[in-house]
Design a protein around this nucleic acid. Sequence first.
DNA 1: AGATGCAAATGATATGATCTTTGGGTGGAA
DNA 2: TTCCACCCAAAGATCATATCATTTGCATCT
Lengths: 254, 254
Amino acid sequence: MEPSSPEVAAAPALPVESGLHARVLEHLGTAICGGELAPGSVLNIDELVDRYAVSRSVVREVLRVLASIGFIEARRRVGVMIRPASAWNVFDPQVIRWRLASAGRMAQLRSITELRTAVEPHAAFLAASRIGRDEASDLVGLAAKMWAAGEAGDEERFLHLDIEFHRRVLLASGNEMFVRLQDLVAEVLTGRHKHHLMPHHPHEQALQMHADVAQAIQRRDGERARQAMVQLMEQAFDEMKSLWEQTAPPHRSA
Amino acid sequence: MEPSSPEVAAAPALPVESGLHARVLEHLGTAICGGELAPGSVLNIDELVDRYAVSRSVVREVLRVLASIGFIEARRRVGVMIRPASAWNVFDPQVIRWRLASAGRMAQLRSITELRTAVEPHAAFLAASRIGRDEASDLVGLAAKMWAAGEAGDEERFLHLDIEFHRRVLLASGNEMFVRLQDLVAEVLTGRHKHHLMPHHPHEQALQMHADVAQAIQRRDGERARQAMVQLMEQAFDEMKSLWEQTAPPHRSA
DNA sequence: AGATGCAAATGATATGATCTTTGGGTGGAA
DNA sequence: TTCCACCCAAAGATCATATCATTTGCATCT
């Protein structure tokens, strides 16, 4: 086994969270994200106790969590009211997971892609001045492996390397908030893959740009790293755009 | 009352949330953010029941919420373990509030400022293509009021206008995730103000740049809007930098 | 019409019991 | 001695029930 080589970390793969609390939370969260429970509609605790055949404790704990992410608001004498999407904590990983599994999936992908477009170039810029020697070497190595996988047409491997590459850039940015976006990026890339948006062989340009980003970061050239990442984002954005233009209608109000 | 003029919206000012749940949550959240409860240390429910003199219902509901933001992990036969900061949902508004009130305040301000630097320029770019006619007019008007307040040396009013300006740009970006960052921006600006980082009279340049951003957005010139916002961010970043260089030591590991 | 007060509805909190999981100890086998 | 299967008590998870507190609709009073 390679000692400290830039290998692909296996996805954590959360263990399905059994337990009544998790089950009810999952069900309600999905229902709200999916619009099955429209904003403004009202539930009450006893009703939920019956519907899910669990105790009040479980229901109340779930409701507290839902309230903390802005999904609901409990009011005495009224019940539990579903709040509009504008109140949701759209950065909560759970919310993102639920939305990616719902009908609003394309809207979510679009939001995240725009966020990436804003954040990743700056992350690359910061990484150039904060990354350690070894990490920089690994990054360059990772870009090389991506090139190899791309040439070989190994889409699966390319995807994992791609995720790992962006993950490491965010990590090297040294900003805790950027770091937390790595899961979102992984989701977007995986989503893109699942919809066969990955061109059969990744664009030659994309491969080169990953290499450029890595090299610029290693050379501590923040501006060049940013520029290269911007180009990467533009390409990724175009691919995404074709995705949601084919799936979703135009898009919302604007 | 002015019909639809770009007036400053009064801050919502959350109503202090009384109730046992809120009190205990607040206390524990603050303690964890403040490092009084170190990662790895273990609590147990009955202990908390005693310490806060509340029922288990309340404690359990609080723990569920804390678990959902990654602060703790409950394990049978062990107790409730405090998780390391790397597991926290650093985008959760509550977490941000707690951290801004803790010793890690400067680190939090730094993270958010970097995030702003990444996001706001892109938000301005997107706003240029998505903003409505009236909103654009309001934005320009707001920049004009900022100029007036700056000239008059009315720091208080300038702060509110500044917050409102950035809020509207994020809103006009049409990206739900960007919109959710408005509270963070408000926190940063307020924090800067409280530490007397606002130069007595705002820099002439800053005033001009706000006007540039507004105008570029109205003219639907995304690139120019982005550029102007980048300059604004650079200046804001410099001000912040002097703030945390005077308060915090160097900064962490890197 | 408007103020006032009562009472039902519903969430908030308290309490005690039982179920389930699991870390650690124990004893026997290799 | 070392290791592993097994057992038990500790602590969270869930349940059931009771009481408290607040809000709101409505009837009543002025």
